[in-house]
Design a binder for these strands. Structure first.
Lengths: 336, 336
DNA sequence: TTGAAAGCGCTACCAG
DNA sequence: CTGGTAGCGCTTTCAA
């Protein structure tokens, strides 16, 4: 049904070796032969099998991408960036949503290994590192994106979360806020911790404090949990005048809580998010947020995996830290 | 570096055929041998190569998914559903964002063919059908999801767009609206046309009319174009009291336009979207919208491709139409 | 039950 | 330049 290299060879009256040469543009083939073979390939609409080529030691031209959930806009955007950059180099992307569950992650890793992907980009927490270490040992290229993989020797491209936290704090301080609180993701996530640390440090420099009780973590359904936590924070007598949310989903929850409490945003409470997903542009008021350059993140991750990054010094530049950016919209303002 | 079937065979003192039997649970192998082989596989942490297996005629356990843009929340949700259902059957999903560009679609199709995917799910418009027909001829299973592929003999799972349009109209009519307008996607998209047709028919039954001039199509950046078009519609003297938007992105544009014009939603203008993406829950006011059951769509598409659908009558039930559902939130209300 | 052997489609080495 | 050939890792007869 499908044409193989043999069909082409037969039809062109040459050996399969010749055809292979033509396909890969290697070896020496006379121009006429090459042209003849080309036209036969065309005629048979022959497409070399990536599978067969891969078996002989060549690449599979497939990359795996692990994220918590592809339906989360932030990761969808990352995926798009990874896809585009991969595509440039002829790679396809296999998506793997882990829901942050270790077993799902392990499963996918194992599957990807069996499929001999040329590299794996990880943007999700991985509980058990053994599997990863095994893969590394088998020299499957692995890169972390938008997530640190502490204790693992993998290429990494992240943003400066600490600085992101500081940016948020600085913006709020400049607006004149004194009493602030934080909505964070699961405390286990390193990037959340860093963001909070940055936020807190910046506050400290301004002589402000961020009590532990003012930091609330959400685990599962970020919008809903965020809303609940924001509610708790905003109900207190000495309510904060500004909320720093470790991602846009949480900020949306906060927005909803404020609304339920009939608190005007930003007049009565300022809210700042993180990630700058499409969601931030869609809320009302639109969210002030800290932007992650998703395109760049995706690009670099792919380049690192593909070893295209060509470090300035031929050392092992394995870590890229991008700078976050403050995007001011309408959800932040001067305190009441 | 990586264990092969030969390693296992040698280590276990059996032939590779025996190992293969064990892997596939076929043939007759004595219990002890089987157990022995299993333990060796374990010890060597041996994983059969999907690539090699595929070459011998077995499946690749990979499915391609074509969508306009994975970073569009609606398609991200579809992707997640497809991924989950595929996963259940051991399949991985390769994402392909076409941006609705025919050449990109063709490219991906060609790539997927070379990779011998076991099926392709298409959720995007495809200009040139030749490539698809070729694939079909080569008996690559293809299914359309959330999109009709007119003139092509492919399995299809869609929602009843016409009914979706009627639902929207009925809701608005029941609220008492008389003068309505529509924001649609590119007129070339069949599902948009159907939605409008349904909307218009329902209006007609209520003795209401929808003039052509009240239907505005947006092509590229849906939020922005939608905003612009909504602006134009709402500025007119006899402005409509309700806007039916063919997807949530457009509805968001409409919301923004209303805001810019200082029109209160839903008091002064009602807005209804389509798709029920996460975006609809996040706007303020939250969007009344027509829900597509993305989970079911994804599930069914995968099942169709995998031939797991087992039709009631062993005929060729190749077309599944799901029902849309009206989700009432806060963006619709009685006219002023 | 078990294993030898013939491919699957393609690459790469090597002799002509 | 060109083609024969030995694999790549696995499945599947077919004999033994």
């Amino acid at each position: 049904m499908k044409a193989t290299i043999y069909d082409v060879a037969r039809e062109a009256g040459v050996s399969i070796a010749a055809v292979s040469q033509v396909i890969n543009g290697k070896g020496k083939i006379s121009e006429e032969r090459r042209a003849a073979i080309f036209s036969v390939m065309e005629k048979l609409s022959y497409k070399p099998s990536v599978i067969a080529a891969a078996l002989t030691g060549k690449k599979t031209f497939t990359l795996g991408l692990l994220v918590p959930d592809i339906s989360n806009p932030f990761f969808a955007e990352i995926a798009r960036a990874v896809e585009d950059q991969g595509n440039i180099h002829g790679y396809s992307i296999v998506i793997c949503s882990t829901d942050n569950r270790d077993e799902r992650g392990e499963n996918y890793l194992s599957l990807l290994e069996q499929k001999r992907v040329d590299g794996i980009i990880i943007g999700t927490g991985m509980g058990g590192k053994e599997m990863l270490e095994k893969l590394l040992a088998k020299s499957v290229p692995i890169a972390a994106i938008a997530r640190e993989m502490p204790g693992l020797d993998v290429d990494t491209v992240v943003i400066d979360d600490y600085e992101g936290g500081r940016l948020a704090a600085r913006h709020l301080i400049e607006l004149g806020h004194k009493r602030m609180a934080v909505l964070s993701e699961s405390a286990k996530i390193p990037s959340s911790q860093e963001r909070i640390r940055g936020f807190r440090d910046e506050l400290a420099e301004a002589g402000l404090e961020l009590p532990e009780a003012s930091v609330k973590a959400s685990e599962r359904d970020l919008v809903k949990d965020g809303k609940r936590n924001a509610f708790a924070l905003l109900e207190t007598g000495e309510r904060p005048t500004a909320l720093f949310c470790c991602n846009d989903l949480l900020a949306i929850g906060a927005l909803q809580a404020a609304k339920d409490l009939s608190l005007r945003v930003p007049d009565e409470v300022s809210i700042i998010g993180f990630d700058n997903t499409i969601l931030a542009t869609v809320t009302d008021p639109a969210l002030t947020t800290i932007a992650q350059p998703t395109d760049k993140l995706g690009q670099l991750a792919v380049d690192l995996i593909l070893g295209k990054h060509e470090p300035a010094q031929p050392g092992t530049l394995k870590r890229v830290v991008l700078q976050p950016e403050l995007i001011v919209r309408q959800s932040t303002g001067r305190p009441f």
